[in-house]
């Protein structure tokens, strides 16, 4: 047991080991971001559709499913953030004397700002959880946000989302966060295949384009929800 643990701590202590963990947790979070968007787009299918979906998530595996997902995601986020912060610190220490002139020839702006976009997204996730999951600083936990669905009293996710995005500051912060998430994904998506040792000269351009398409999709889908409610009055 301790031999395996020693090996793991050596793996984590190494540059490539940390990066592989960042890539694997990044892959999990990419999967989550996609599923989250698909589920949320049900808002356009009407009140019952999204409320039923919300109820399904809450009651899957007798209410255990949502907690399994939460624990898994929390672990993924923790590993992703702790490892990247530590890698970034090492990167900064690796060049104590800066160049007078340093030109980037091929790398994107997004790839140079991963830690900034990432930490802003982290702050957003905290706000987002307080907003819609813990529901602090609003009345989303009150009886006004309960509704009858097939004879069962369930949480009115639909009304909560509509009311949530009717407030301009929240909508604006969501849009900024989604733009940064999209920037983060535009580098992170194809990057993870390189770190996991999968990229080839033939597949790399495909991963790159898929990453841009995915980043665009995540922004467009999430922004559509916010904008259609906030600016175009959907559901209000």
């Amino acid at each position: 047991m301790s031999a395996v643990f020693d090996s793991f701590s050596r793996f984590y202590a190494s540059s490539i080991g940390k990066k592989i963990l960042v890539a694997l947790t990044g892959l999990m979070l990419i999967g989550f971001v996609f599923g989250h968007l698909v589920g949320n787009l049900l808002i356009f299918a009407g009140q019952d559709a999204i409320n039923e979906y919300g109820h399904l998530l809450q009651t899957a595996l007798h209410g255990g499913g949502v907690w399994i997902a939460r624990v898994g995601l929390l672990a993924a986020v923790l590993i992703h953030v702790v490892a990247t912060v530590s890698l970034t610190k090492q990167n900064n220490a690796a060049r104590p004397d800066k160049y007078g002139q340093h030109k980037a020839q091929v790398s994107s702006k997004s790839s140079h700002t991963m830690i900034l976009s990432g930490l802003t997204i982290l702050a957003f996730v905290v706000y987002h959880l307080l907003h819609y999951t813990v529901r602090i600083g609003n009345s989303f936990n009150s009886d006004a946000y309960k509704i009858d669905l097939h004879g069962e009293k369930v949480h009115n996710v639909y009304k909560m989302v509509i009311d949530g995005f009717s407030w301009a500051p929240a909508s604006l912060f969501y849009l900024i966060a989604m733009a940064l998430l999209s920037s983060h994904l535009s580098h992170g998506f194809s990057s993870l295949f390189q770190t996991l040792g999968i990229s080839t000269d033939k597949s790399e351009p495909v991963f790159k384009k898929a990453g841009y398409a995915f980043a665009g999709l995540i922004f467009a889908g999430n922004a559509a929800i916010v904008l259609s409610i906030w600016l175009f009055g959907y559901g209000r």
């Binding site: 940390k18 091929v106 994107s108 000269d201």
Partner: peptide, 28 residues
């Protein structure tokens, strides 16, 4: 040394045009 962030500036600067696919292989 610092850690690779997959930006491929190294490949662009290499006078011998070593490919970053070698980094893929090293990771694997």
């Amino acid at each position: 040394f610092g850690n690779c962030t997959n930006q491929y500036e190294c490949e662009a600067a290499c006078p011998k045009e070593i490919s970053v696919r070698w980094i893929t292989k090293l990771n694997r």
